[in-house]
Every structure is written in C-alpha cells, then in structure tokens.
Design a protein around this nucleic acid. Structure first.
Length: 378
DNA sequence: AATGCGGGGGT
DNA sequence: ACCCCAGCATT
C-alpha cells in the first residue's frame, strides 16, 4: 500500500471511531425514518444545526409523515418555514413529497436515480438520504466535507468549481468504510462543524491531525481555496405601514408577493424602491420624497394612501441584495379609491390584526416591523 | 459556469 | 465588516 492509500485508510478508520464517540445527540439522529432525515437535510442546506433544531421539531410534529405533509395546505408549510429562509426549499419539499406519495406509495425511494430526481434534492442531499437513511455507500459532499478533505489531502482547487466538487465526491466515496456509510458521512460533517472549522481549526483535538497534509504544510487556515462572492447590491426602499380606520381600526395593510422569484408567495408590508438619487439615506431627507414614491406606487395598485410620519428604519441582507428600509405610517385617503369595503381591495392585499400573524408567513424583516408596531399599539 | 435565492452567528 | 453555513434550480 502506498503512502496516500495509508493516509486514506487511517483517515477513514480514525474518523469513524471519533464520530461514534463524539457525535451530538440531534433530533434527526434519534431515528432512521427516511422522511425525517430528508426533512432535516433540506433544512440543513445553507443553515446551521442550532438554527434548524427547533424548526425540525415543530415541522415533524405538525407533519409527521409523507402523507401529512403531502396533504397540508402550502400556506401552513410556508408558515412552519417562516424565518428559516430559502423558501423554495419548503415548496420543493412538499412537491417532492407528493411525488413520493403518487409514484412510490409514500415510501422514500432508496436508489440514486429516484432520490436525485426528486425536486429540491441535488447531489449532496441525495447522498445524505441514501447513506444516512439506507446506509448506502454514496458520498454526501457539502461545504464541511470539502473543507475537511481539502485540508487533509491538501487540495488547492477552487471549491466553488463544479469539477472540484465532482472530484471530492469521488474521493469521499473511496473513503467510505465497508458498511458504515451513514456514520462516516456524518462524521465528516461533524468534524467540519466541531473541529475542522473555517477559522482557527482545533487541530490539537482532531482525530486525524497526525496525517493531515494541510497542517503538515502549515496551510490549515488558508484552505479551502474559494473564490469570493460578489457583494450584495444595495437597495433603499420605502415601506408603508397603512393604519386602517373605521371597520379596519387596529389593522394594517399587508400584501402577498408574486408566485415566483424573491420571497415567492410570502406576505409583506407594501414597499417601493427609492429613486437612484435617494438611494443613500441622509439626515436631510425630505419626507415628502418617501411620501410621493409610496403614494405613486400604491396608486398603481389602485390604492390611495397618504403617508403621515416616519416610523422606523430596518435593514435586511439577502445573499444578493441589501435592503435599507424606511418605514412610514400611512392612512387611507378618505373618500378616495381605497374602498370602505374590504372586498374591493386588490386580491393580494389584506387587512390584518395581530392575531392574523399566526396564519401568514412573513420574511423576518417584516415580522420585526409588525411585531414592533403591534406591541407598541397594545 | 454564473446567478438567484434568506437569514443568522462567529470573528 | 466580512465570512460562512449539512445546496439547488435555472439559465
């Protein structure tokens, strides 16, 4: 056996033993229910374990089986996902679960082609489901795994490239010990999460430090090589907090976003993009600018409102956009188009009170604004 | 291959 | 102020 083969064998053996001693007690590790493992893997995409735990527990309690999730209204599924981000994950998961109900009799499939074909399931998640739920020897290469492997094997290829991920998958598959795919794959990720961390890795407690080529080369902190992402583009927006009067007293106006795109089908406060000249907030801002931008925007939606006063600022960063929000309290224009009769609102608009928040899914930035407002009013 | 798609925590 | 995270779909 050559030197590289020895390093590989050592890595597999030591990592597996380490995982079995040190693995965390996580909710989705308490059973091998393939549906539960699937749900956890979708939630864990781009999301930390600590964040996922409470969401996972609530989700499987409400939707314990493939059937339960398949039959649920999408609105309820989105509400359970509220705050977790990347909401297409939730919609794709439900669509895939319905596919499993129709095509596989409600049983999560156990072959690569079938699992991979499910909506929202890519190379990582397919490997995770097959190895963790069914103990099949498939690699599950995520960001953690690429970091660990790039350090241990001193791989300097850019991990953002698809070809690098494919090479890592081949390597990861060769490393899987006989009959222990699930534990080994989870061990790789566990090591990346707890020991071989992005910054200041804890090499002295690492079970495979002795043969780590990255550490030998003094490169454990500079690996993996990763091309920098583009910074998010800034957007300043004016937000309308429209206070109802008359029958709508105590309510505010919200709307549902379009079917596709950013935050698809989520609820929000009405808002409009500031003109370029006002793209940077300044102390000398003329409130009338926000008022005209908002009034014009809502007029296009057949609503007549009059901004009253600046209320608060908020910001929110997506991967690709940074929102600076200025919130203005507004009033419906009396006698104008805004109907006394709520049925005449454009269909994607609604008046809501605090109690209605429990049904509608909002992105976090609007949750913060609405909670601030309703708390202050009560 | 590049881009769109949330949100929070660590440093 | 970055950086990163148990990625996938679309183009």
């Amino acid at each position: 056996m050559n030197l590289l083969e020895q390093k590989k064998h050592y890595f597999s053996t030591e990592l597996l033993a380490w995982y079995r001693r040190h693995k965390r007690d996580l909710p989705w590790r308490r059973s091998r229910n393939p549906y539960h493992i699937w749900v956890s893997e979708i939630m864990l995409q781009q999301t930390r374990v600590e964040t996922v735990i409470p969401y996972f527990n609530r989700f499987v309690e409400k939707f314990p089986t493939v059937e339960a999730l398949a039959e649920a209204p999408e609105e309820e599924v989105l509400k359970m996902w509220e705050g977790l981000g990347y909401y297409s994950r939730a919609r794709n998961l439900q669509s895939a679960v319905r596919e499993v109900r129709e095509n596989y009799g409600g049983v999560v499939p156990d072959t690569k082609e079938d699992v991979f074909s499910l909506k929202g399931v890519g190379p990582y998640t397919a490997g995770a489901i097959l190895s963790i739920a069914y103990n099949k020897p498939e690699p599950a290469v995520d960001g953690n795994v690429m970091r660990v492997l790039s350090r241990y094997f001193l791989i300097e290829d850019d991990i953002m490239k698809g070809s690098t991920r494919v090479a890592m998958e081949k390597l990861a598959q060769e490393l899987i010990p006989e009959g222990a795919a699930g534990d080994f794959n989870q061990g790789l990720m566990e090591l990346g999460a707890l020991v071989c961390t992005p910054k200041s890795p804890s090499c002295l407690t690492c079970p495979v430090m002795a043969h780590c080529m990255g550490r030998d080369a003094g490169m454990e902190e500079s690996l993996p090589v990763k091309k920098k992402a583009k910074p998010p583009r800034p957007e300043r927006r004016f937000v309308a907090l429209v206070e109802g009067d008359g029958e709508q007293a105590g309510c505010v106006l919200v709307r549902q976003r379009p079917q596709e795109g950013l935050l698809a089908r989520m609820w929000e406060l009405p808002h409009a993009l500031a003109p370029f000249e006002a793209s940077v907030p300044s102390a000398q801002d003329d409130p009338s600018l926000a008022q005209s931008v908002l009034a014009t925007h809502l007029e296009e939606e057949s609503l007549a409102i009059a901004p009253v006063a600046w209320y608060m600022q908020a910001e929110h960063t997506f991967s690709h956009i940074h929102w600076e929000l200025d919130v203005y309290v507004c009033r419906p224009e009396r006698s104008a188009l805004l109907p006394d009769h709520p049925a005449l609102l454009p269909t994607h608009y609604r008046w809501i009170g605090p109690d209605d928040m429990a049904q509608l899914a909002f992105p976090n930035v609007f949750l913060r604004i609405l909670n601030t407002y309703f708390r202050q009013k009560s």
